[in-house]
């Protein structure tokens, strides 16, 4: 038992110590994150380019996530449309449904849902894979065979995820709109051409650019967080689980923050 605990003055002192330690740790972590990102931007330009690995990762991230993400998008399209109908019906404005769906899905739901699902699926996979490679010394093995593991593992994954998440987002958005169309068609008997005419009428070029930029940033975030957590995973099997888990949590958290910030910027531009 810690007898010192009962001495007067000890507890606050210790608490202060703990707080500074914690602050230290946060700054050290931030510096590490900065260095990791800086290294990515330094190394991405120069050969050797690991094209084969990039393509493999694009396949892993893009194609393998397609079924889950499109299913989710489709269902969200239907459900969202169905749930929005009553409020519009109150005003007798169900003819505005396609426009509403369009704005909601293209501006917000498409990119966000894709990113969140990818954070869960792709982020955790990258975190766990690199984490276990770190733990079993495969990353060290690459390094001693004079191969740059950062380039082979990190650069390829971050690039693949930055490329594939926007592509997935586009696909999800389309499938979502299709889900919405099915629901509208069933209830309001709107034709496909009329539906999509209204959909594209409701959005602007800025919306599409904004969504694309957003999904590029989300993709980068997911790849980067997964790689950072995995690459710096602590030793032991426990480290792998932690890396996978915190990849997802951190990526989702950052995605929400980015979503909020980007929304503010876009609104400012729109108002301008």
């Amino acid at each position: 038992m810690d007898l010192d605990k009962n001495k007067p003055g000890t507890a606050p002192a210790r608490r202060r110590y703990v707080t500074t330690r914690r602050l230290d740790r946060i700054f050290v972590e931030l510096a590490k994150v900065y260095r990791f990102n800086a290294r990515f931007f330094r190394e991405v330009w120069f050969p050797p380019y690991e094209f084969k690995e990039i393509i493999k990762q694009c396949y892993e991230i893009g194609v393998r996530s397609l079924p889950l993400i499109s299913l989710t998008g489709f269902i969200i399209g239907i459900v969202f449309t169905n749930q929005s109908r009553p409020s519009l019906a109150d005003f007798g404005a169900t003819s505005l449904l396609p426009a509403l769906i369009s704005v909601a899905i293209i501006r917000a739901i498409g990119p966000l849902v894709t990113a969140l699902i990818a954070a869960g699926r792709v982020g955790s996979a990258i975190g766990a894979e690199l984490g276990s490679m770190r733990v079993t010394e495969q990353i060290d093995a690459m390094e001693v065979s004079a191969t740059n593991p950062f380039k082979f593992l990190v650069v390829s994954r971050v690039l693949a995820s930055t490329l594939m998440i926007p592509a997935l987002t586009m696909f999800t958005t389309l499938v979502s709109l299709l889900g919405g169309y099915l629901n509208v068609h069933q209830n309001e008997l709107t034709s496909l051409s009329v539906f999509f005419y209204q959909v594209f009428d409701a959005i602007t070029f800025l919306d599409i650019v904004a969504s694309s930029v957003k999904s590029v940033i989300f993709g980068f975030t997911i790849g980067m967080v997964g790689c950072y957590k995995g690459y710096n995973s602590s030793k032991g099997t426990e480290g792998v689980g932690k890396a996978a888990n915190s990849s997802v949590v951190t990526a989702m958290f950052l995605i929400f923050i980015e979503e909020l910030l980007i929304m503010q910027v876009i609104n400012a531009i729109r108002a301008f």
């Binding site: 079993t136 495969q138 060290d140």
Partner: peptide, 12 residues
């Protein structure tokens, strides 16, 4: 230098 790791470290 050839480095043979304690746990082999083969690429899974």
């Amino acid at each position: 230098i050839g480095f043979s790791f304690q746990n082999s470290a083969l690429y899974d």
